[in-house]
């Protein structure tokens, strides 16, 4: 019988999977969510597996087809790795603007996506907009699913699984990430709008992927706005109006920082800001 908490240090993905799936350890990444458990009225787990010692979980690989991000890559490391990488401006903005400098040094991509009940993740909408997928190891084997599908089922997934990698396809898409914290920076954004677009030869939008975070409990795509954007030009004010016409698509969550209605009302402004960022990239 274990009478004290155990913390193990796997040195590879295989060891980390074994510790979590067979050994009953909980993944411990940057610990910035886990150590706030007492403030949420939650108990710490009996055992943890530190992910940062497994080198392959901490690597970002950029290839022709796409990028592969280890789940234990920190926000700071991701924003450095994405400098100058075409198609990932929005993801780089999300990684470099979330939280504060000390938190970005340790908080990881996996921790940001896996923290149960965390609604204000910046990386979640940015990765959905990038069309990313996650790789999950569990007793059932290895599965790959879209970030959106992973998030939608996150709360009901039985324990004993490990996210190992995140894949995002490379493309010629333009992308942007717009967020609204109540201070200028440093606190959780009350709403986030991330998008990526593909353009036609005439410059109009051929297809758009729009994701909204922090407004509802779980980040998700905004199909109504995606459809409205098809065939349109990069007009920030028009984008704000199309967003305003579809605010009924969301039911904002009430929280200490902001009531639900406020979170939805700021979405047109975020659409405008995201489009300004897109325009600046053309």
């Amino acid at each position: 019988m274990r009478n004290a908490r155990f913390v193990c240090m796997p040195r590879s993905v295989e060891e980390a999977v074994a510790a979590v799936v067979e050994g009953g350890a909980n993944p411990l990444a940057g610990a910035t969510w886990i150590l706030r458990a007492p403030l949420r009225g939650e108990a710490l787990a009996e055992g943890y597996a530190v992910l940062g010692g497994a080198e392959d979980l901490c690597a970002v690989e950029i290839g022709e087809a796409g990028i592969r991000i280890g789940a234990a890559v920190t926000h700071a490391a991701l924003s450095v790795a994405l400098v100058g990488v075409e198609g990932f401006v929005g993801l780089a903005q999300a990684a470099s603007e979330a939280a504060n400098p000390a938190v970005r040094e340790v908080a990881t991509v996996g921790g940001n996506l896996c923290a149960a009940g965390f609604a204000a993740s910046d990386l979640a909408p940015a990765l959905i907009a990038a069309g990313a997928e996650v790789e999950i190891h569990s007793a059932a084997g290895v599965e790959r699913q879209s970030v959106e599908a992973f998030l939608a089922a996150r709360a009901t997934r039985p324990p004993g699984w490990l996210m190992t990698r995140i894949f995002a396809p490379c493309s010629a898409r333009l992308s942007a990430h717009a967020r609204l914290p109540l201070r200028q920076a440093g606190d959780y954004p009350v709403a986030i709008l991330s998008l990526s677009i593909e353009r036609r030869a005439d410059g109009a939008i051929a297809s758009a992927r729009v994701a909204v975070g922090s407004v509802e409990p779980v980040a998700r795509r905004w199909p109504g706005l995606e459809q409205a954007l098809e065939g349109q030009t990069l007009d920030p004010d028009a984008a704000a109006e199309w967003a305003r016409a579809r605010l009924g698509d969301f039911e904002g969550r009430d929280g200490v920082e902001a009531p639900g209605w406020y979170r939805t009302q700021v979405l047109p402004g975020l659409a405008r800001a995201a489009f300004r960022s897109l325009r600046a990239q053309v």
Binding site: L28, L35, R36, V103
Partner: peptide
């Protein structure tokens, strides 16, 4: 104790770290 205020900041390997959210194991 939430990582927001920075009053607990220390340097770990030369980089600022919030010691309220750093378990000693790390």
């Amino acid at each position: 104790r939430e990582g927001f205020c920075g009053a607990c900041m220390v340097l770990i390997d030369g980089r600022p770290a919030v010691s309220c959210l750093t378990p000693i194991a790390l």
